[in-house]
């Protein structure tokens, strides 16, 4: 963050190791245009693709896009990005949003990972179930009601009036909320085929401004009846209320892809959270 003549600079990165990162950049641009219409303090938004540690260091906030979580994790490891990412998310606790593969990477625990699979970044005390709905043939679109949008932005953002069209592609869900513990999720380490993220302690200076607290559920998929694939013969009850959006302090995760719809409302809401976080941040 910096400022010149009362203009506030905010740099938002999109992790660009693999996946649909450019789609997020497009939606961020769209969201920033919408925000500039209502802003009192003018913001200088800088959106950049992040592939290296130095690029990450310049960011005030970060999006982890959809893609293949295994690939992103392995490339991050080999590009020496895993530890800087854990620092960003868990030590300095800067605003971070993960979609689909990004949600998996931000989970403290993920299942259905194969041997030699992936390392997690962590930051959200949840267990995600990868490829929850199955393979590509089970991918679908659904209309969602996301109450947090309305609370933040009022008219036009009321998803009971105009639902958020969400696209789920080989999507994960949040299968379990975990307690906020000091250290790693040891109980989860004992679950078969499950990997956990290593623990990183929050920076004590940052801890004064942020209370990490418990995970909040921000959105659910109300049974598969809402999904468009009406020919699906699954038991609807078992699928009722799948958790598909969560937040814990600085970390936000969605299992669907708002970057594929051209609907910038979640990006607008999230950028407002970023502005608040930047304003709250203690001076170094």
């Amino acid at each position: 963050m910096g400022s010149t003549e009362g203009v506030m600079d905010i740099t938002v990165g999109v992790l660009a190791l693999q996946g649909a990162f450019n789609e997020h950049v497009q939606l961020l641009r769209q969201a920033a245009r919408m925000l500039s219409a209502k802003d009192i303090v003018e913001k200088n938004w800088i959106f950049k693709e992040v592939r290296t540690e130095s690029e990450l260091k310049s960011c005030d906030a970060l999006i982890l896009p959809g893609g293949e979580s295994t690939t992103i994790s392995l490339v991050a490891q080999r590009s020496n990005m895993l530890e800087p990412l854990r620092d960003f998310v868990k030590v300095t606790r800067k605003p971070t949003w993960g979609t689909c593969a990004g949600l998996i990477l931000l989970a403290e625990s993920a299942n259905r990972t194969k041997r030699g699979g992936q390392e997690l970044i962590g930051g959200l005390d949840v267990r995600v179930n990868r490829n929850h709905f199955g393979r590509q043939i089970e991918s679908f679109e659904a209309d969602l009601n996301l109450p947090f949008l309305k609370n933040a932005n009022g008219q036009g953002f009321d998803t009971t009036q105009s639902p958020f069209r969400a696209i789920f592609i080989r999507a994960p869900i949040v299968e379990k909320l975990l307690p906020n513990v000091a250290g790693e999720q040891e109980g989860e380490a004992k679950v078969d085929d499950t990997v956990i993220a290593p623990s990183r302690a929050i920076d004590p200076n940052v801890a004064r401004a942020i209370n990490v607290g418990e995970v909040e559920i921000m959105g659910t998929l109300p049974g598969r009846a809402a999904a468009l694939k009406v020919d699906d013969s699954r038991k609807l009850d078992a699928e009722a209320g799948d958790i598909i959006a969560v937040r814990q302090a600085n970390v936000f995760g969605t299992s669907f892809h708002p970057e594929l719809t051209g609907d910038p409302r979640i990006h607008v809401w999230w950028l407002e959270q970023v502005v608040e976080a930047v304003n709250r941040r203690p001076n170094p």
């Binding site: 649909a20 990162f21 893609g67 293949e68 991918s139 080989r170």
Partner: peptide, 9 residues
């Protein structure tokens, strides 16, 4: 959408 997720890979 799946093709977009494969990009950069």
């Amino acid at each position: 959408g799946l093709a977009r997720m494969l990009k950069g890979g």
